[in-house]
Nucleic acid binder design. Sequence first.
DNA 1: CCCGGCATCAACCGATCGGCTATCCATCCG
DNA 2: CGGATGGATAGCCGATCGGTTGATGCCGGG
Lengths: 208, 208
Amino acid sequence: MIRIVLVDDHPVVRAGLRALIEGQEDLVVVGEADGLEQALSVVAAEPPDVVLMDLSLGTDSAGGAEVTAALRALESPPEVLVLTTYDTESDILRALEAGARGYLLKDAPPEQLFGGIRATARGETVLAPSVAATLVRRTTPGASTVTDREVEVLELLSRGLGNKEMARELFVSEATVKSHLSHIYTKLGVDTRAGAVAVAIERRIIRA
Amino acid sequence: MIRIVLVDDHPVVRAGLRALIEGQEDLVVVGEADGLEQALSVVAAEPPDVVLMDLSLGTDSAGGAEVTAALRALESPPEVLVLTTYDTESDILRALEAGARGYLLKDAPPEQLFGGIRATARGETVLAPSVAATLVRRTTPGASTVTDREVEVLELLSRGLGNKEMARELFVSEATVKSHLSHIYTKLGVDTRAGAVAVAIERRIIRA
DNA sequence: CCCGGCATCAACCGATCGGCTATCCATCCG
DNA sequence: CGGATGGATAGCCGATCGGTTGATGCCGGG
């Protein structure tokens, strides 16, 4: 019997996942949480084998990546399987760096979800195809790779910030931001900020 | 027995909603769809009383608003209850203009969902509290109201477009765009484009 | 050890943005 | 019938922004 805890801020999704999972003989949901605190207390009270983690947990709570990191920092940490809507480079990297064992998308068919949970419980790594593709493309040498810092700039850019504001946000000078932007332009093959945002979204470097 | 069709591009959410709903004596799911075509054929094959509609249906398909409009254009149209994640002014307005009867958020408790479905089947209007608040604020006289056109500009702005690009996108002259922007600045109490985007997101006029 | 990638920064210059004033037209409403 | 509102447009001008180029320091790999 694989013990599962759900972490998602949507009651509908939680209840839905619970209903789906409990239709499986070998899976049982032992708890639900909608944020960091609940997740910690539930996991402590009913130690699960696998935690199903949503990444976007509403604005008030910590993000799923932080919650994942917090859970993985426990003495005997549960395996974490991320189940979310977005498959952008930054989301994936953050989650995996936080210690997630797998990364599935919410538009996956239920069978894939069940299989993923079982594989995660066995300690295997589970990645949705598009997620795997993103990671491969990232480590492919030839492809022009956007650096972490540049991704940060792209995210701010997509929020419509000006150079000065980005500089303030990143604690660097405006000149540095401009430099990052120039590099981004060459790497993405564009020459304007709007174009950069478009391509970055297109290539799933950031999310819309 | 209230007959329901689910329209959502996430299998997990669809299956989850189905499981939840079928736990209710008086509700039955008679079909699921993940986009416009499926929705039309399913509704034709198994005429429902209520359609539960997600607004963001993946990039390839039409949006939930268009699907809603298409369904409401049928001879004997089903009632449409929007069930989505976002409660921005533009989303709400688009959905209601398309003929949706109600608007609930996915973070609503299941009970509210069931009640909403029953009310919708009776032809009543169902709005989540925050949605109602947004609508009220919009029709409140004193508050500086951003016009529809200005919202369009704000959305383009949040995508990082320049004035010239917005002008092209909206089929107007650059002067017009600037004029809209000036009005937006005064109404939102800011003096930069990035600031306008920030306040617009903050006030839920557009979504991040 | 030296090269390359990454992050940082400075100075320069042209494009643009922002703010202003003013006009025109359609629609809606009392 | 006015009057108000929303939308579209023009022209102006100075401040600022955005983009390029070039240069520095740091770190890790070959």
